[in-house]
Nucleic acid binder design. Structure first.
Lengths: 321, 321
DNA sequence: CCGACTACTGTTACCGCTAACACCCCTGCA
DNA sequence: TGCAGGGGTGTTAGCGGTAACAGTAGTCGG
């Protein structure tokens, strides 16, 4: 594999000039720059990351903490990873996956943390390297997330647009920001429409939502739509309605949240609010890398707009008026 | 962060001795060795991986190729990743995720490849660095996989043990080794029991298996068990049976394959054949690392025994006799 | 016309670690 | 006693980059 030196020789310049072309191209005359580019091309030059890391006192590694038990990990993490990996790749960073077992800190340039709960914020404070969270929070950490409020607002409004007159919210029973934001989205939308909120909160398991609907089915009149905080909950709701003989989407609607994998497992497939998870992963990566480059400067947060994916568990929107 | 030199100074030896203690402890007298260990301990020495990589002409990076479109990626890949990451961590290797978008080769010490199809073997041959496949193959590549034949044999036999008299196989319609092995497991078990095989082959999508059962339900007598090549297919089968009014598990049985996430989404939860995916990921990691250490020496293959997880979609085994 | 300044490019040293070799001392045998 | 051989340790050089500094032109104003 060609090195800086090889390129330098081929272009008849010093190694330093080649290095500059790579890192500070504006400091090199156009003429030399193009010579160097040509040489790099000819030799198919690939920088040696280890050498770069050593010289810069960096590791070129970003650690991803998944603070969740592995056997409960949701499918969308794969998409997150893919996006993250893309962003890191671009800057020749490697990803290191850290799970509950091997919680070792150190030996990296920055962290991405996901699945954190309130109890985790304590030790996050103690880490000095750049951190970006995947998931909203009010502790002042930089983060990337979906607009959770908007997402559920959207599904709630859509349910109303479809002509369902009774909108029930099936939320996640966690004292975490994302869960609260989603619930808030529901409450806000209902308030605007002068409708009566009806809220249930469960652990995020399909058989729990299924059991809930099973147990209370008689209390839900026809024309009810269940706005759910996750596809997982939605799938359980869908199943229970079907078992109880409810007709989807004619008499009952179901709307999920996430739009990754599980929505397609339902039958009919779930109407859902899709998060652009891979894109979000990519942005999270960009954000840590920026933060690393800028010596830990706060990056604020980036909030992505989720999109409604209308499918089989809701009937078509009714004409207005 | 303490360096080799710091440790050396503290232990009153040369850097080289410290390096030896780390890499070839047998070449250092016990006395010095313990001095060095003590010093490393005192200083909480962590080796600088970039420096090590540079000196050894290594990258300390293993790339994971997921040769599947990201939006079809199955949940169990997360577990694979977790196991892989563990193994790599132990040896201070970093993981680099490569997806269909960014198929760049190079800049690593070895590869793990998964989701490959026959068409992929061509270019795999061209890679000179150590490769280990996750998934069986007959092209002579080292690999880690579940014993697919045994797995489906197990589920087929179990179905018979439960007293189902008609055993139908719902397979994956791919000309790949794993798909064929699973089908073979079914055929073998059926032959042993002098039972008539009945095989369907579909793309691995729950709504396809669902449609299949819907369309042919009348042809399946009571006391039929569907042995499926994946949990995904099994979920569709389960749903169709329920819609058609079939009673699970009394009149119809369903057995899946994988045992990661999806099996728990079913209702009742799926009886399934569980692959120890995380462990397999770990072993895959160990195998590439070994192969790297041994300069590409073939490692053969490692086949894991999957386990039956009896749950709600099959009735209890009948007493023998 | 000369010094200072600007704008590039090259030289040097070093990041932390390891292979290869040099060295030392001790043992064992002639 | 002399010397080969070998185990144990230190020295040297280099892995492939980069920051910091040192040139070396050309430009401009006085």
């Amino acid at each position: 594999m060609a090195t800086l030196g090889d390129v330098a020789a081929k272009a008849h310049v010093s190694k330093m000039t080649v290095s500059r072309v790579i890192n500070h191209p504006e400091k090199v005359t156009r003429e030399l720059r193009e010579l160097v580019y040509a040489a790099m091309n000819d030799l198919n030059y690939q920088p040696n990351i280890a050498a770069k890391a050593l010289a810069n006192n960096r590791t070129q590694i970003v650690k991803l903490f998944i603070l969740e038990k592995m056997d409960t990990v949701e499918p969308y993490y794969m998409n997150l990873l893919a996006g993250l990996a893309d962003a890191l790749d671009e800057k020749n960073y490697a990803l290191q996956l850290v799970t509950k077992n091997s919680l070792e800190v150190g030996n990296c340039d920055g962290y991405v943390v996901t699945g954190m709960r309130n109890k985790d914020y304590g030790w996050l404070e103690t880490v000095e390297k750049p951190i970006v969270l995947y998931g909203e929070n009010q502790m002042g950490f930089d983060y990337v997330d979906t607009d959770n409020v908007l997402g559920i607002k959207t599904s709630t409004n859509y349910a109303l647009t479809c002509g369902y007159t009774n909108i029930v919210y099936i939320g996640i029973n966690l004292p975490e920001a994302f869960a609260q934001s989603r619930e808030q989205g529901y409450t806000l939308a209902m308030t605007v429409h002068h409708a009566q909120p009806q809220i249930y909160r469960l652990d995020n398991r399909s058989h729990l939502s299924e059991a809930l609907i099973d147990a209370h089915f008689s209390e839900f009149p026809k024309n009810t739509c269940f706005v759910c905080a996750s596809d997982r909950l939605a799938i359980g709701v869908e199943r229970a309605i079907q078992r109880q003989g409810g007709r989807i989407p004619d008499d009952y609607g179901v709307i999920g949240f996430d739009g990754v994998f599980l929505d397609r497992i339902g039958s009919p497939q779930l109407t859902t609010i899709r998060q652009p998870v891979q894109k979000m992963g990519y942005e999270t990566g960009r954000m840590v890398l920026n933060k690393i480059e800028e010596n830990g400067l706060p990056q604020g947060h980036e909030v992505f707009v989720p999109t409604l994916v209308p499918r089989g568990t809701t009937r078509p929107p009714q004409a207005q008026g």
